[in-house]
Amino acid sequence: MTADSILNVRWRKASASDPFDNCVEVARLEDGEVGVRNSRFPSGPALVFTRDEMVAFIDGVKKGEFDGMTV
């Protein structure tokens, strides 16, 4: 799905994002799902995840399961 096709949402990004828009943005969708897009391409593709999928992902992030991804 394209990010442009997701209407009436507020895209949010982390305060630690760099000033060049190289970050991930998320938006809560009307049906409770979560949209994810690349801020460099705001009208490009968006991934959509269920609430449970996002809860599992965030839990993994908090537990350090993805710490090696940025090395």
Rank of each mutant, 00 (worst) to 15 (best):
A56T: 12
W11P: 00
F20H: 04
E25S: 09
A16N: 15
L47M: 07
K13Y: 14
A56V: 09
P19F: 09
N38K: 06
T2P: 14
R51L: 03
N8K: 05
A14Q: 15
N22C: 04
A56M: 07
A56Q: 09
I58G: 09
R40W: 11
G32N: 06
F20V: 06
V34K: 02
A16I: 11
C23G: 05
R40N: 11
S43L: 02
A46P: 13
V71E: 14
E30D: 07
A14K: 13
V55T: 09
E65L: 04
G44W: 03
S5F: 09
D31S: 11
A46S: 13
R51S: 07
F66M: 11
A14M: 10
T2C: 05
S43Y: 01
N22R: 02
E65C: 02
S43H: 03
T50R: 08
F66I: 09
D21P: 03
F41T: 12
R37Y: 02
P45I: 10
R10P: 03
A16L: 15
S15M: 05
E33Q: 05
W11E: 00
I6A: 04
R12D: 04
A27K: 12
V36C: 09
A46C: 13
R12Q: 14
G68N: 15
S15D: 09
E25P: 06
V24P: 04
